[in-house]
Design a protein around this nucleic acid. Structure first.
Lengths: 128, 128
DNA sequence: GCCAGATACCTTGTATAACAAAGTACTATA
DNA sequence: TATAGTACTTTGTTATACAAGGTATCTGGC
């Protein structure tokens, strides 16, 4: 079990949340998003981002318009739909609760209270 | 696109982290873990937990011993191996950085600084 | 006009993991 | 010896990240 797999898993759900948030702040195209995510140390590559944007659009959460560029091919500038804004609001709640739940688990260092842990079961001389 | 999918994605990587943490605090068996995760409002079901525990064991991160119960069939009590402790330490760092990165993205509300957003490209009268 | 390089977007195949649902095995009790 | 409860297991489905390779557009040098 490579730790990278788990790290990827951790990133997974967060990615969608972050991307919707970035789009919510103003029109951006894919390279803008990649740049912002990279500068926040969230690793993403094109092969992940483009299919994700396609999924979001098919789901009606984002929309885009082609805009010509002065330095290359045209770009897809994305915006959030109303459904996308609602979705983002829900995701915000989900994320915050998840952080809270995780903190609850990982800062709980007792465990002697409700955990019986009868390691060797001394009550019965368990011989066959 | 159902929001449940995204919520599941968010849970994914965190689950492994939480379970390793629970095991690190003392010997527990599957139902103990389910109970603790549920009380922290992290939804998990048997069909997720058992395969995950099997994966962790195959990877050498956890170990278990059968312990007889006075009220039913024997139970597998899990412990963390040294590799598991090291892994948990790394996951802690990964998780904390991810929370930080996500906060950086989702609390950044300007966007007018480094985002050009030339929505309609006024520089060229782009007529064919 | 033509070609090389850069930019931007897209597609295919593979691997991983959560989950639902159904199944197996062991124990106690009536 | 049934029945119910507890604990662990397995199979099939679906979703998604990612690597790698592909297509299309634009600019600038010749």
């Amino acid at each position: 079990m490579k730790i990278e797999n788990t790290q990827v898993q951790m990133r997974k759900g967060i990615l969608e949340y972050c991307i919707l948030h970035i789009i919510s702040r103003g029109e951006v195209y894919a390279s803008d998003m990649l740049e912002e995510l990279t500068s926040a140390k969230i690793m993403v590559v094109e092969g992940t981002l483009y299919p994700l944007l396609t999924r979001l659009r098919k789901a009606g959460l984002v929309d885009y318009q082609w805009v010509e560029s002065t330095s290359g091919p045209p770009r897809k500038y994305y915006t959030l739909t109303q459904a996308g804004q609602d979705f983002l609001t829900q995701l915000k709640t989900t994320w915050e609760e998840l952080v809270k739940s995780t903190n609850q688990i990982t800062t709980n260092n007792n465990g002697s209270e409700s955990l019986p842990t009868p390691v060797t079961d001394p009550q019965k001389s368990s011989q066959s």
